[in-house]
Design a protein around this nucleic acid. Sequence first.
DNA 1: GCCGTTTTCGGCCCGACTGTTTTCAGTCG
Length: 562
Amino acid sequence: MDDTTRRVADLLQFMGQLLEIRGEDAFKIRAYYRAADQISRLAQPISGMSEADLLGIAGIGKHITRKIQEIIANGTFRELEEVRQGIPATLLELLNLEGVGPKTVSKLWQQMGIVTIEDLEKAARSHRLRALRGFGERKEQDILKSIEMYRQKGTRMNRLEADRIVARVASALKDAPFDTAGSYRRGVSTVGDIDITTTATAAVINPRLRAIADEIIDEGEKRTSFRCQGQRVDIRFTKPAEYGTMLLYLTGSKEFNIHLREIALSRGMKLNEYGIEERRGGVLRTFETEEAVFAFLGMTPVPPELRENRGEIERAFIHNLPPLIERADIQGDLHVHSDWSDGQMSLEELARRGEQAGYRYLLCSDHSATLGVAHGLSAERVKGQGKEIERINRTSSCTILTGIEVDIMADGNLGLPNTVLGDLDLVIASIHSGFKQERDVLTRRLLKAMENDHVDIIGHPTGRLLGERPPYDVDLGRVLDVAADTHTALEINASPYRLDLDDGPVRQARDRGIRLAIGTDAHDPAELTHMIYGVTIARRGWCGPADILNTRELRDLLGATT
DNA sequence: GCCGTTTTCGGCCCGACTGTTTTCAGTCG
């Protein structure tokens, strides 16, 4: 997203938060949040959009359009500046505390003069909070605990961590039937908490959960929340007859649920986690499966990965959802390292692992020599590796493709000469250094690499490491333009530590007909199994088999990239 | 503030759980 679009979304979000603290009408607040959300997922820069374009976006009307125009022209809007005058900026941070919402913040501020987390901590420690109406000893303790949690900053889990927690909870549930839901089920690249629904009863399950919980947050007949290995887990207990609507509700996303419920409402039906009822005193109709709910509403079932209210609901009503890629469509892995650079697998092992995975091919893409730490390959060693691969391929049903993950250096030149690159089956070009360069410099490095005829794929195009390093500052719009022009594929790096590109840009690339390549970037055998994470991101980006290079047969693949 | 196949006014997704309460407000998902 470009800076201006980002700023518009941020300021509308900010306005919503300020209005919350002021205790304004909840629907007005929601309107700002909704507008901010819509803008943050725009595929194009907002500054290029006309007034009519803006008004065409659901949830953006006359007033917010004017404010957007003001932000584009002046960097802010008058009403926001007026509202923020009266409210200390530090108050917003208090909203990050679990159990502390706008009403509480407002009360703390107006009745006790509390404006920072430090103020709040002091007041709670000296037992002054309990003087407020609606506060007691328990609440003081809870607030202190929330402050501690916030300072430890529980970050979102990557998929691998989430898988571990799910496995742990599954072991406690034993034979009880259950499904994961929430962002985990939708396949989001990082997961905030684990949502689970089960038809087993609370009476049976709650005691088992206590055995694996660090802490029980709250415990009930219908829902139990607890912390497991530092992460929050929510379990909903469901009757089998109501399982379909419960799973649908718990899977979300929130925006998907709201939109679907609005549509149900407009047809005189109320949809919740227990079923669907006629709005005027009808009986509750229940559904055992999600498919049954979708069928009743007249929709094609929406795969969980698509449930983000990005147009999939409308498409499901006209039975026109895109075909999505499946794990079984994958014919090979297009990014693997061997022990010729920093990987652990020999070339023989690569071939064997590829056969075991049922792959037709694997792209051996070791680092080029410029990347000192990775024992990268010189021009000479590239040749040597090629001979070795040729030998192994004679007896392997999984063809090892010769390749390289060549460095895009600080000046945009590549780490190996064209004469070397030209002899390889496929070339990935990636940035591994100079992350802090100016946006324009970084962007031009990528563009220059794409314009090289020998470069087939751009590896981990934004360079992010989830929870560790933000994406580098590139103009993704320009990258997509040039990728389309030069027929360069962009990678969906399937490593759970990267997932780069993520679903948003994948969708944009896919909509523009840009080809995508899924690679695990495996350095050891276990990492070859990460392919599923990449496939999931592709699905979230609305990709079908035809959008992904490595669904192709070998001959087709090489034909497409020469 | 947005929006319209009951509406240009009067709705806006819906429910669980907790703490501090004597019936509910606040928060969360």
